[in-house]
Amino acid sequence: MANSDAPVAVLTSGATASAGEAVVVAFHGRPDTRFFGESTRGVPTGNQPHRLSDGAVLNLTEAKDADRTGRTYDARIPPDEEVFTERRTVGTSRDRVLEAAKSWLAEQPACR
C-alpha cells in the first residue's frame, strides 16, 4: 500500500451491524486508528442457517469476529470517542461525529 501507516478514523453508530461490525473489528488493534460515534448494534458474529426437517430454518451463531490481536467480539462495540448525533445531520456540515473525526485527523502529524 502507498500509505498503510496513515491515521484512520472509523465512524460507528447503532446502525453499524453485522458485516459493518466486521469492518470495525478489522481496524481494532491497528496503530493510529481511532473510533468515533456511538456503540455498534452488537451483532459482530457469523450466523449459519440450518434447515430443520419440518422446513423451518434455525440460524445459529457459530463464529465471533476477532481483531488482529485475537480478541473476539460478541456484543456492542463502543467507540474511543463517544459522540452523539441526530440521524438527520449524518453526512452534513452539522454531523458532530464526522467533525470530531476530521478534527482528530487534522491533529495527526501524517495528515499535516
Rank of each mutant, 00 (worst) to 15 (best):
S18N: 14
R96H: 10
A106N: 07
A15H: 06
A101G: 06
P109T: 14
P44N: 04
A9L: 03
M1A: 06
R71M: 13
S18C: 07
N59C: 08
Y73P: 03
E62V: 15
L11N: 02
P44R: 08
A66T: 07
Q108Y: 07
E99V: 14
N3I: 12
R30N: 12
Q48I: 05
D67L: 03
K64E: 10
N3T: 08
R112Y: 09
E82S: 13
L60I: 11
P79T: 01
A66G: 03
E38P: 02
G14E: 00
A56N: 06
F36P: 01
S39I: 10
R41E: 11
A2K: 12
G29P: 03
D80Q: 00
A22L: 11
L58S: 14
H50A: 14
R88P: 05
G46N: 02
R88F: 08
D95E: 08
A100F: 02
I77P: 01
R30A: 06
Q108D: 06
R34M: 15
A66K: 05
E62L: 13
H28L: 14
G55Q: 00
A19Y: 13
G37C: 10
F36Y: 08
K64W: 09
S13W: 00
W104V: 09
S39L: 11
A101L: 07
P7L: 04
W104I: 11
V83S: 04
Q48V: 11
A106H: 06
K102M: 15
D5A: 09
Q48F: 13
Q48M: 14
A15M: 07
D65M: 10
A22G: 09
F27Q: 04
P109R: 14
E21Q: 01
A75I: 01
F35W: 05
L105Q: 11
R41Q: 15
A101W: 03
D80S: 00
R34E: 12
G46I: 11
G91Q: 03
A6L: 09
Q108N: 05
P49C: 07
P7W: 03
A26L: 02
T85D: 04
A63G: 03
V25Y: 00
D74C: 03
H50P: 09
